[in-house]
């Protein structure tokens, strides 16, 4: 006998993600999910973003890593609330992990919640966490042809940060070709060249993010 199920396989994750999003919206929290390879500069970008926006928004951070809490410690050292999630080997974060992390934060005191996802360009893209935007960081040393190898993440991101831009002179990174492939995967996505550790290009990225946060707020109060 055949039984129709028509049920999402990630049903549990998707339901919890929807709950998370409802909770974030209720408290006016904008949630950013940052995706990148290991070492591309996620933590550095978060620190730079904190520097640029901390006067305007109350920021908190969720750090996802397979092990250790060094990234959360780096954030806390700047006086910003941070919670570490250790996935214990899992290659991506799921929405119930986010929920537990949020429970450890003061949600009423957050305007912008930044999630550093596990360093991985494949798995996190299929998992909704309840975020408002997924943003992808590619660093120059990884090469301009990355989008050919990991098209999905470039296709889904709402913005792409091209980090470690200061290292351009030592790598054969073809920026024109990079921008062209990214456009073919995601026609309207903005690309922000940036040096997170040196501050170059941070302002343009931070302004985009602030505009995105304000747009979300406007939509919420409509």
């Amino acid at each position: 006998m055949k039984i129709d199920l028509s049920k999402p396989i990630l049903d549990r994750n998707e339901r919890m993600a929807a709950e998370n999003r409802a909770l974030f919206d209720e408290h006016g929290v904008f949630v950013l999910d940052l995706l990148a390879s290991p070492g591309a500069g996620k933590t550095s970008t978060i620190l730079a973003t904190i520097g640029a926006l901390r006067e305007r928004y109350r920021i908190a951070v969720i750090e996802g890593d397979i092990a250790s809490d060094v990234d959360a410690q780096k954030i806390k050292a700047h006086g910003v609330p941070a919670v570490q999630i250790n996935t214990g080997g899992a290659c991506h974060l799921e929405s119930d992990m986010i929920r537990r992390a949020v429970d450890a934060l003061e949600i009423t005191e957050i305007d912008l919640l930044i999630i550093e996802n596990v360093g991985n360009l494949v798995c996190p893209t299929d998992f909704d966490l309840g975020e408002h935007a997924k943003v992808m960081i590619l660093s120059v040393p990884e090469g301009h042809d990355k989008p050919y190898k990991y098209p999905n993440i470039f296709g889904r991101a709402e913005a792409v940060i091209l980090n470690k831009y200061d290292t351009m002179p030592v790598f054969d990174f073809d920026e024109a070709e990079f921008r062209d492939v990214v456009r073919r995967l995601n026609a309207t996505v903005p690309v922000f060249p940036m040096s997170a550790t040196r501050g170059q290009g941070v302002e343009a990225w931070a302004e985009w993010l602030a505009a995105r946060i304000e747009a979300q707020r406007a939509a919420a109060t409509r």
């Binding site: 055949k2 039984i3 028509s6 049920k7 999402p8 026609a187």
Partner: peptide, 24 residues
Amino acid sequence: SYFCEMVEGRELEIESIDIDLPDE
């Protein structure tokens, strides 16, 4: 135009199962 909204292609769905019942 590049302004398009995806309607299909990201499914991860169980469609159906076929089972044996005790009297079948």
